[in-house]
Design a protein around this nucleic acid. Structure first.
Lengths: 244, 244
DNA sequence: GACTTCTGTTGCGTATTTTGAACTATAGGA
DNA sequence: TCCTATAGTTCAAAATACGCAACAGAAGTC
């Protein structure tokens, strides 16, 4: 059960998702807790260093401690570790933004990104979630799942605006047949994205994606770039198999 | 007080620092908790998604949930957000690895890094901590602190191997006079690192550092690169002042 | 400026919650 | 095969966290 731990972590999570510092009453209303309860929880979270008083008025903000702990976890992640050199090579070869993503529930979670060091505000960032159907990485992974499982997900997910179930189904079939996924204006207007799944024991455990401006990626260019993407994903799959 | 929250977060932290999956008894010994207590805490952490059973034997490992939450926190960090474009510009101008770091207690905490996309295993990674005295970023920030405060830190810190207090004190004075810090073989053998503090309201709140191989960075090259570093730090300070 | 209504924090008594020992079950090693 | 690890569960005892109320202060309103 451990109710206190539950509430404390929920509180931390809420604070992490908040834009600015927040007070106890406000947080209490959002989480259905009393002011005094929230106040005390914030006090202990502050003692532990996960939170700090931002105002003299008693509003709190999340510190970087959770980030630090999270980075330590991520630094050991075997998927990211084995994939990273291949992602860098792929970026070097294509000049495009390169992503590594996994499927978590109905979302895609971005694990890594290699981008040009120019100031290009890519929408997808490591740590972000996006609905799997909208983006190429998600479709690449879904295409290798059982159709009935995918169907259930389409039906259950609310954000299917402008996306017919049959269209999606057809796209996934096509994706699986040709071996790669593509979305146009998926995560961001004017962006084309290509993705290929990474397999471990015949399961699509991740996806490698690369994206660039629509104007730059005409069909000829895409065809020229695809082999590098397919190769990168294949080599990551192979490397994963050797690790375990 | 909130003892349960305390223990739960301590458990998560320990698990995040562990190399592989760990069992309840083992963790209990390390944290002075009973097996049943740890077992229950792990159960709720698993329910909340922060931890998962890695073995069928009942050993647990941290998931990426803490990382995800942490990344959401970091994505809003004003220091990193304002610094990032300048760090990228500095990297583009110099070709060196560029770092952003803050001082936390006796350690330096790396917030960001811009490096060449080639496979170069830099020792410092975002999220990592290193003793402030050892590395240029730390010295850059310490040099603008009150000497007595620094002295207390030197005395208290155990890892002062091969580092005389007077030598350090002299180096900090020199650093402050010339406006930048330098370490040779600081974080890693064969690496030279240069750093300059970033100020907010006359306090050294961060440091920008850049590093490269000793062979590449002779004095002539260093003198050529320094203005870019000083300029980057100054512009970040200025940008910070405009934000608040 | 006085008033009203928020805010965060803190005692305190109650009762909910957590706790640790004992117990079961299972797995690995000698 | 036994022995000793392990993890997980039950239950009564007790420590703990809870909400209410009270207080102090801030912020907005008339």
């Amino acid at each position: 059960m451990d109710k206190t731990l539950r509430k404390g972590l929920q509180l931390l999570e809420t604070l992490a998702a908040s834009n600015g510092p927040r007070g106890a009453a406000e947080l209490g209303r959002e989480l259905d807790l009393t002011r005094s309860n929230v106040s005390r929880l914030l006090g202990t979270l502050a003692e532990l260093g996960f939170v700090r008083r931002a105002d003299e008025a008693g509003r709190y903000a999340a510190t970087l401690k959770a980030w630090e702990i999270g980075m330590r976890i991520m630094s050991r992640d075997p998927l990211r570790r084995t994939a990273q050199p291949f992602l860098r090579a792929l970026h070097a070869e294509t000049g495009l933004n390169v992503f590594l993503a996994v499927l978590d529930g109905d979302d895609v979670l971005y694990l890594d990104k290699v981008e040009a060091n120019t100031i290009s505000h890519v929408s997808a960032q490591p740590g972000m979630r996006l609905p799997a159907f909208l983006i190429s990485s998600g479709r690449a992974m879904l295409a290798w799942h059982k159709p009935e499982m995918v169907g259930a997900r389409v039906a259950s997910h609310p954000r299917t605006a402008g996306l017919d179930r049959d269209d999606l189904s057809a796209d996934l079939t096509l994706t699986r047949e040709r071996g790669w996924a593509m979305t146009v204006d998926g995560s961001r207007e004017g962006v084309i994205s290509l993705a290929v799944p990474v397999f471990l024991a015949d399961l699509p455990v991740a996806a490698v994606a690369m994206s660039g401006p629509k104007a730059e990626l005409d069909q000829k260019r895409r065809e020229a770039l695809l082999p590098a993407l397919l190769n990168a994903a294949a080599r990551i799959s192979e490397a994963l198999a050797h690790i375990g």
